[in-house]
Amino acid sequence: MDETGKELVLALYDYQEKSPREVTMKKGDILTLLNSTNKDWWKVEVNDRQGFVPAAYVKKL
């Protein structure tokens, strides 16, 4: 969790967005987890953008 109590995830792999609903991340990025109710796609925030990334590409910290 960060200082505001939000849950964080670590990008395990690079991911290039394939639609406007997704976000690009690089391996090693720390992202804010917004929603993990879907087992396949998690909603995150990175670089002031919100979108989805494959759940298998990130790990909760």
Rank of each mutant, 00 (worst) to 15 (best):
L8G: 03
G28F: 04
G28Y: 05
G51I: 04
V58N: 00
K27G: 05
S36L: 05
P54R: 03
T32A: 10
N47W: 09
K43Q: 12
G5T: 12
G5Q: 13
Y57G: 08
L34I: 14
A56C: 15
D29I: 04
K18L: 09
Q16F: 15
W41F: 06
F52Y: 15
D14K: 03
K6N: 10
E7D: 10
F52D: 04
V53F: 01
G5K: 14
I30F: 06
A55C: 06
L61H: 05
V44D: 00
D29Q: 15
V46F: 15
N35Q: 10
A11K: 01
E45L: 09
L33P: 00
Y57C: 13
D14M: 03
K59L: 10
N47H: 13
Q16A: 12
K59Q: 14
T4I: 13
R21V: 11
K6C: 14
N47F: 12
D2V: 15
M25V: 08
S36E: 14
P54A: 03
G28W: 06
L33M: 03
V44H: 00
K39N: 10
Y15W: 10
T32C: 10
Y57K: 08
W41E: 04
T24M: 04
F52C: 12
L12Q: 04
K43I: 14
G51W: 03
S36T: 09
T32D: 05
I30D: 01
G28V: 00
V46I: 15
M25E: 00
N47C: 13
V58A: 03
K26A: 08
E7N: 10
A55S: 13
K6P: 14
M25G: 00
Y13M: 10
V9Y: 10
K39D: 11
E3R: 13
D29E: 11
L34H: 05
S19C: 10
T32E: 09
R21T: 13
N38A: 08
A11T: 03
W42F: 07
A56N: 13
K27D: 02
A11I: 02
V58E: 02
L33W: 01
Y57T: 08
G5F: 13
Q16P: 07
G5D: 12
S36C: 12
E3S: 12
A55V: 06
L34V: 12
E17P: 14
A11Q: 00
T37G: 09
K43W: 13
L34T: 04
A11M: 02
N35A: 08
G51A: 03
L31S: 02
E7P: 09
N38E: 11
K27C: 08
P54N: 02
E7A: 10
K43L: 15
A56H: 11
V44G: 01
L12T: 04
P20I: 09
F52I: 06
T24L: 02
Q16C: 11
P20V: 09
K26W: 10
V9F: 06
A11R: 01
E7M: 12
G51M: 05
P54Q: 02
L33G: 01
D14R: 03
L61G: 03
I30Y: 06
L31N: 01
L31I: 08
E3M: 14
V53S: 00
K18T: 12
K43F: 15
V9M: 05
M1T: 13
V44C: 04
R49H: 07
W41I: 03
V58W: 01
L61S: 04
D29V: 04
N38M: 09
L33D: 00
A55N: 03
G5A: 14
E17V: 05
V23R: 02
D48F: 09
G28K: 02
I30N: 02
N47R: 13
W41G: 00
K43T: 07
S19E: 08
L10Q: 10
D2G: 14
D14A: 06
T24H: 04
E17R: 12
V44E: 00
E45S: 10
D29L: 05
N38Q: 08
L12F: 04
D29G: 04
V9T: 02
P54H: 02
V53Q: 00
G5C: 15
S19N: 11
V44P: 00
R49Y: 05
S36W: 08
L10M: 14
P20M: 09
R21A: 13
E17T: 08
Y13I: 09
K59F: 08
D2W: 14
K18V: 08
L31T: 01
K26Y: 10
T37S: 14
A56Q: 11
F52E: 03
G28E: 02
L31Y: 08
K27E: 07
L34C: 06
R21W: 15
G28T: 02
D14G: 06
E3D: 14
V58T: 04
L12W: 04
T4V: 12
G28N: 06
R21H: 13
K6A: 10
T37R: 09
D40H: 14
L12Y: 04
D14S: 08
D2F: 12
S19L: 08
E17Y: 04
E3P: 14
L61Y: 08
K18G: 08
T37Q: 12
E3W: 09
Y15I: 01
A55W: 01
N38L: 08
V23E: 01
T37L: 08
V46K: 15
K26T: 09
E7Y: 10
K39S: 11
L61R: 03
M1G: 14
K18C: 11
L10N: 03
S19K: 07
W41M: 05
Y15L: 01
M1N: 13
K39H: 11
L8W: 13
E17K: 12
M25D: 00
D29T: 08
K39M: 09
P54K: 03
D40M: 12
E45V: 09
T24D: 04
V53D: 01
D29H: 05
L33A: 02
K60T: 07
K6W: 12
Q16W: 14
A55E: 04
K26C: 11
L61D: 03
V58Q: 01
L31W: 02
L8P: 04
G28L: 02
M1R: 11
F52W: 15
D2N: 13
L31D: 00
L31C: 10
G51N: 01
R21G: 15
Y13H: 11
N35K: 06
T32Q: 11
K26S: 08
K6Q: 10
V58R: 00
A11D: 00
Q50E: 10
W42R: 01
W42L: 04
P20T: 09
D2P: 14
E22M: 05
E45W: 07
R49C: 06
L31P: 02
L8T: 08
M25C: 06
M1Q: 14
Y13W: 11
K27V: 07
D14L: 02
E3A: 14
V58H: 00
W42T: 03
L34Y: 03
K18H: 08
E45A: 11
K39G: 09
R49V: 07
L12H: 03
L10I: 15
Q16Y: 15
M1I: 12
Q50A: 11
V46Q: 15
E17W: 05
E22P: 05
Y13V: 10
K26P: 00
Q50K: 11
L61P: 03
D14Q: 03
W42E: 01
E3I: 14
D14N: 07
K26G: 05
D40T: 12
Y57L: 15
N35M: 08
S36V: 06
M1C: 15
K59T: 14
A55Y: 02
K60Q: 08
P20E: 12
Y15C: 03
K6V: 12
E22L: 05
N35C: 11
G28Q: 02
L33K: 01
Q50L: 06
R21M: 14
T32V: 15
Y57P: 02
T4S: 14
G51R: 02
R49F: 05
L10S: 04
S36H: 08
N38I: 05
E3L: 11
R21C: 15
R49N: 06
D40P: 02
E45Q: 14
A11H: 00
K6E: 09
K59Y: 09
L8C: 12
V58I: 08
A56K: 14
K18A: 10
D40L: 11
D2K: 12
L12K: 04
L10Y: 10
K39P: 15
R49K: 11
V58D: 01
D2Q: 14
K27W: 03
T24C: 06
P54G: 01
K60Y: 09
E17S: 15
Y13C: 15
N35I: 07
R21Y: 12
Y15D: 01
N35S: 11
E3T: 14
S19T: 12
A56M: 12
V46D: 13
K43E: 14
E22R: 04
F52P: 00
N38H: 11
V53G: 00
R49L: 07
T24Y: 03
K18I: 07
L12M: 09
V46W: 08
V46T: 15
L61F: 08
G28C: 11
M25I: 15
